[in-house]
Each structure stands twice: as structure tokens, then as C-alpha cells.
């Protein structure tokens, strides 16, 4: 298989590993990092297609996704800090108060 398929397979694998990591790990910070991994996986496939089709819009989109990821982290981490201040643990199991 050629380069494109290889990279796309890597992209899919990174995305899958990220999602499974969220399911499997028991630490909130680590789960956040796996979310970033997912995002990177998607960004890789975006890069592949941008290069293949030669459109600048793809590159622009990637830039904007960087921006969004930064903004997201900027808010998610403080929220996490507050949460841990209140709950005194990084175990997601302790934060099940909203269950139905």
C-alpha cells in the first residue's frame, strides 16, 4: 500500500487508541491527554488529504484546529483543577453524582 494508505491507517490507529485510552485509564489528567491524542490522529488524516489534493483550505483548517485545541485545554484544565480541589481525587468514579 502506498504512503497515503499507510498514513491514514496510522491516523485511524491513533484515533482508536485515544478513544480506548479514555475508556481504560483511571486518571482524569491522563484521560485528557488521550483526548489530545485523538485530536492529533484526526489532524494527521487531514494533513494527508491536504497534501494529496493540494488545497490551502486544508492547511488553514489544521491551523484553526490547533487554535481550538489550545482554547479547549485552556478551559478544561482549570475546570479539572477546581473539580479536584472539591473532590480531592483524580478518580473519575468519585464524580458520578449526575447519574440517572
Amino acid at each position: 500500500m502506498d504512503n497515503a494508505h499507510l498514513l491514514l491507517a496510522v491516523s485511524g490507529t491513533l484515533f482508536t487508541l485515544g478513544l480506548v485510552g479514555v475508556i481504560v485509564r483511571r486518571n482524569l489528567l491522563v484521560m485528557l491527554m488521550f483526548l489530545e491524542l485523538m485530536l492529533n490522529g484526526v489532524l494527521l488524516s487531514l494533513a494527508v488529504f491536504t497534501q494529496l489534493l493540494g488545497v490551502e483550505a486544508g492547511a488553514v483548517l489544521m491551523l484553526l484546529v490547533f487554535t481550538v485545541a489550545a482554547a479547549e485545554i485552556a478551559i478544561a484544565v482549570p475546570i479539572l483543577l477546581l473539580l479536584v480541589r472539591a473532590g480531592h481525587t483524580l478518580d473519575p468514579g468519585a464524580y458520578g453524582g449526575l447519574k440517572g
Binding site: L19, V22, I23, P92, G93, Y95, K99, G100
Partner: peptide, 16 residues
């Protein structure tokens, strides 16, 4: 309502 178990891991698994 049993679906909304309060467990983040379970939610992510359902997403998958």
C-alpha cells in the same frame, strides 16, 4: 435511566 450510570468510562465506551 440505567444508561446514565455516572461513569465517564461507560459513556466513552458507548461513544465508541
Amino acid at each position: 435511566a440505567r444508561v446514565q450510570s455516572g461513569s465517564l468510562h461507560w459513556y466513552a465506551w458507548m461513544t465508541l
